[in-house]
Write a protein that binds this DNA or RNA. Sequence first.
DNA 1: AATAAATTTAACCAAGTGGTCAAAAAAATA
DNA 2: TATTTTTTTGACCACTTGGTTAAATTTATT
Lengths: 205, 205
Amino acid sequence: MVKIDNPEEKILEAARKVFIREGLAGARMQQIADEAGINKSLLHYYFRSKDKLFDRIFIEVFRTISIGMGSSFSEDKPFFEKIKKFIDLYIDVLTKNPYLPIFFLSEIQHNPERLQNIIEKDIFKNVSGIITQLMMEINAGRIRPISPPHLILNLMGMLVLPFAVKPMMAPILKRQLDVDYNDILNERKEIVYNFLYNALKIDEK
Amino acid sequence: MVKIDNPEEKILEAARKVFIREGLAGARMQQIADEAGINKSLLHYYFRSKDKLFDRIFIEVFRTISIGMGSSFSEDKPFFEKIKKFIDLYIDVLTKNPYLPIFFLSEIQHNPERLQNIIEKDIFKNVSGIITQLMMEINAGRIRPISPPHLILNLMGMLVLPFAVKPMMAPILKRQLDVDYNDILNERKEIVYNFLYNALKIDEK
DNA sequence: AATAAATTTAACCAAGTGGTCAAAAAAATA
DNA sequence: TATTTTTTTGACCACTTGGTTAAATTTATT
């Protein structure tokens, strides 16, 4: 149980909530203050401006999103086990933070420059790890050839989009097929892994 | 060459541009007026309020996004040909309007109610077409079993996400692998089709 | 307890914000 | 041409915005 009574942490929690729900342009400093249960001036006392406070949250979100990238592929395990671990980890993150991807992508669409200032080199350095191993598997004839960026895009798309479209798809699928969208999301780990496995694997005869 | 000299069309074009780039909360009526080269009051003369003008654009975007759904699957062709046609059509739409998906998803994340008012029944009615045919293929043992909603999510994810993450991925891939992201996007039609084909197809022996 | 430092607040401000309105300009009608 | 109608504009308004500041309050230091 982390104590949350200090105002700085209360502000950050409120800002996180409001910014992610409303976006930078839609969020109001007063709203954040109310959410944190403090005076609006105190926001400026702890964080100088709306933009500074937003930057803090934005970087935090970027870290959350990119955290799974490296760790899953650093261990020495068979290729498909790493893939599986990555999928599990990423879907857990998305389940806990379903609104992060659209928030993040929307903000960089509004203001791409913001991202340039915070891209840390090390975030995608481990991507080179997966790439070399992918190439090894391809060269060994164990999986079908595919360009690494495309594999990453395919995988990311199948992981992220179902969470992003939830507000649109949930009511549609409920009405059309009478399925609960949360059930769908819970099945994603297995589905994505099998789909990707079948797409890549070459059956040994 | 469509003439665009009438103010209503000029306003709509400007609103489209500004709303999609900035979002509802970030867009300014003055900005739209400037973009259209007219007085701000004229916006309210033609469209009563910011929200009304936005609704007009939002519905238009929704139509653009969902337009491919039906048409690709209505014709009587083999399953994978329909898939291929859908992929081609959808990537063409995204190439022409790369910012639509994030704009759309962001706005329904901010305000899901807006969508409920405009969801027209017929938009996903043809989805039932693809579902029945998918089931037929599965029952015939020609493709691997997969739940229809998951197949749709997999496909949509692989189609949409690469465009949505362009502002983030383009500089990263340029620096890390020295690849031009537009080349990547141009390869998507083929890649997605092959990936999906391999994931679903059962080789006849 | 007295004083200094840090925290919190209420009152306030300049700069926008969406929106209104009456008058000017242009177009249509007589 | 005169007049009515439609279109366009500039001036304006109430309200909200992020941000400031000085005073009040709490906390730490002596």
